[in-house]
Amino acid sequence: MADPLSLPMDRVTSDAVPAPNGAVQAQDVLTIAGKSMHSRLLLGTGGFPSLELLAEAIAASGCELVTVALRRIDPSPTHPRGSLLDVLATAGVQLLPNTAGCHTARDAVLTARLAREAFATDWVKLEVIGDEDTLLPDAPELLRAAEELVDEGFVVLPYTTDDPVLARRLADIGCAAVMPLGSPIGSGMGIRNQYNIALIREAVDVPVVLDAGIGTASDAALAMELGCDAVMAASAIARAQDPVAMASAMRAAVEAGRLAHGAGRIPRRLYATASTPAQGLPDFSG
């Protein structure tokens, strides 16, 4: 296959247009299920050492959509209920509840229904895990859960493998986006199969959000250069030595990658191509 970073432009769908000042223009919006967002960076709220750092990182990232999990309530005063939701409400971000920790379609569907009750949103980041060590998705259970939740009117964003066929099946079912992994959750291994991510972008008509495996800013830029519509980062920001600085870096990387994708990179070549013309070269021979 051709270099995925050098896809012919007629196969690349991009509406990223650089403004005169170099920033991505305001009309370059990401639309998922009718919701328009100016940020193409999604943030996971897990792993932040404190809610204060989470709030600062959200501001630095510019993100508009953040994931939250659903867990048993801890009534002790050391876990003031609602404080996370207060922080997210103050930040003005939309919640994307996840089904993290679910291993069956049944559990994931129930968790999505409970999240809809708790957070009054029908959006769900659908995770159905098939293996404890790699946290890789369980494809048959994922498809089953996605189908059921779409039927129930949920806006389903499934966390999926980097398999283009599975991504297409999920999109065909009616998922609002697909979220293929770059590498296992929290591994920081970046995008292990660039070719598959590029194929997924071609295989589906819904937004592709690169999820899982992002380690640093260059991984996020690469995802966008491959044609992804957005990037989700959680551990890469939350567990960085300076989460707020990394949130800023991810924001810049996503914007840079988006612009570069729209700009169309030069093909890779084995040999040099002079950037200065040979014409007019003086002759200094004696």
Partner: peptide, 10 residues
């Protein structure tokens, strides 16, 4: 009975 609420999560 399960009573659940928001928690930080990716």
């Amino acid at each position: 009975v399960e009573v659940l609420t928001a928690m930080q999560g990716g």
